[in-house]
Computed example of a mutant assay.
Amino acid sequence: MANNHRRKLFTTRRSLIGGISAGVLVAGALTTTSMMSPASAAEWPTPSDDRRISETQEISGEVDGGMVRYIGEGDLGDGGQDEGQPPMFKLADGATLKNVILGAPAADGIHCSGSCTLENVWWEDVGEDAATFRGGNGATFQVIGGGARKAEDKVLQHNGGGTLKVRGFAVEDFGKLYRSCGNCSTQYERHVELDTIEVTAPGKDIVGINENFGDTARLRNITVKGDGDRRIRPCVRWQGKEGGGEPTESGSGPDGRHCLYSEGDISYE
């Protein structure tokens, strides 16, 4: 292929490891219907095996990883925060990746070229970002279950248009759980819906959106742990830029138009 970082290893409804079909979940994996309660820090999954990769793995169709932990090396193994790193996995439009653990280093995590579903995917030590969502205004992205920790900056990066729906997800030790791109060359109206999320301090912001581009964020059933001073901000609004430049912060908290939640939607433990 022209891009030597990528190779097509997986096809529709094939497992990443032999003998496990896409329709089978290994012991300890969560089913779609049971993912509304995110795992706590003590319940992170144990990998079934470790595999080192040095090239981006391209995914199409539906792929079950059998809870294998993938560790980057070579071009995927820097472990830094530099922009422009290749992803460990690149999902085609409409693809589903489930039951995978990303170890460290993890480069730029997962890229979705269009609509995609990430189900029971775990990031043990987020690299540049955990997942980046691309595609046009009609794209729909789902993150069901799973979790991420040790993210110096962003966990879920939304660069394309459309709507990202996250439910049953756990995050800890992070900068921002979700960020609508503040200065992409092409900007979109973006929407995010968070439901049943466990947030464990330290952390900075749960959501960051661009109000000048019409973004919205809906937050429901958010539990924040270990943040007695309530320093983690649930929703921050920005004035985004198009084609470069630094976005500027314009406000935070529920406003009935962009940050859509009430006091009762956020609980503290």
Rank of each mutant, 00 (worst) to 15 (best):
H258R: 05
N3P: 11
P87D: 01
S60C: 12
G23Q: 01
R7F: 14
S267L: 02
R167A: 04
K241W: 07
K165L: 04
N99R: 07
T200H: 13
D227P: 11
G103V: 05
D173A: 14
V236F: 06
R13W: 08
G109H: 01
I53R: 04
T186W: 00
D153L: 13
V207Q: 04
N183M: 11
M88L: 13
C235G: 03
G18S: 15
G208R: 12
R52G: 00
G136K: 06
G74E: 12
S180A: 15
W238L: 14
V199H: 04
D227C: 12
T223D: 07
R14D: 14
D129F: 08
T216P: 06
G264D: 09
L260D: 07
G208M: 09
G77S: 06
K225W: 01
P234A: 11
E119H: 15
K98E: 10
R220D: 05
D78Y: 09
G226F: 07
I59D: 15
L25P: 00
G168P: 06
Q85I: 03
T12D: 15
S34E: 14
G80D: 15
W238V: 08
M36R: 08
E211C: 12
L30V: 14
G136W: 10
S250A: 09
T163N: 06
G161H: 01
F141N: 02
S34K: 11
E124D: 10
R237Q: 12
G243W: 05
G256C: 14
S54W: 14
E246K: 11
T200S: 14
A39W: 08
K176H: 08
R69G: 09
R14W: 10
G245W: 03
R190V: 09
Q142I: 02
L97H: 07
G208K: 07
T140V: 14
M88C: 11
I206N: 00
V121M: 00
H258V: 07
C112M: 01
E83L: 13
V26N: 09
G77R: 02
V236Q: 13
E83K: 10
G146F: 03
P105N: 09
L91I: 10
D64A: 15
T132V: 09
Q142A: 10
R13D: 14
D229I: 06
G146E: 05
T163L: 06
N212K: 04
G147A: 05
T163W: 00
G109A: 14
V192A: 05
Q157V: 07
Y268K: 04
P45H: 03
R231P: 00
E128A: 02
S60G: 11
G84V: 12
G114D: 02
N137Q: 11
G251H: 02
V171A: 06
V224P: 06
G18E: 13
S34I: 02
V192G: 03
V26T: 05
S180T: 01
L91W: 13
R14T: 15
M88G: 10
I266D: 04
P202R: 06
R7V: 13
F213Y: 01
S54R: 13
T56R: 13
L30Y: 10
L25T: 10
W238P: 09
G79K: 02
V126H: 01
A217V: 06
F141K: 05
C235F: 09
E263I: 04
A27R: 12
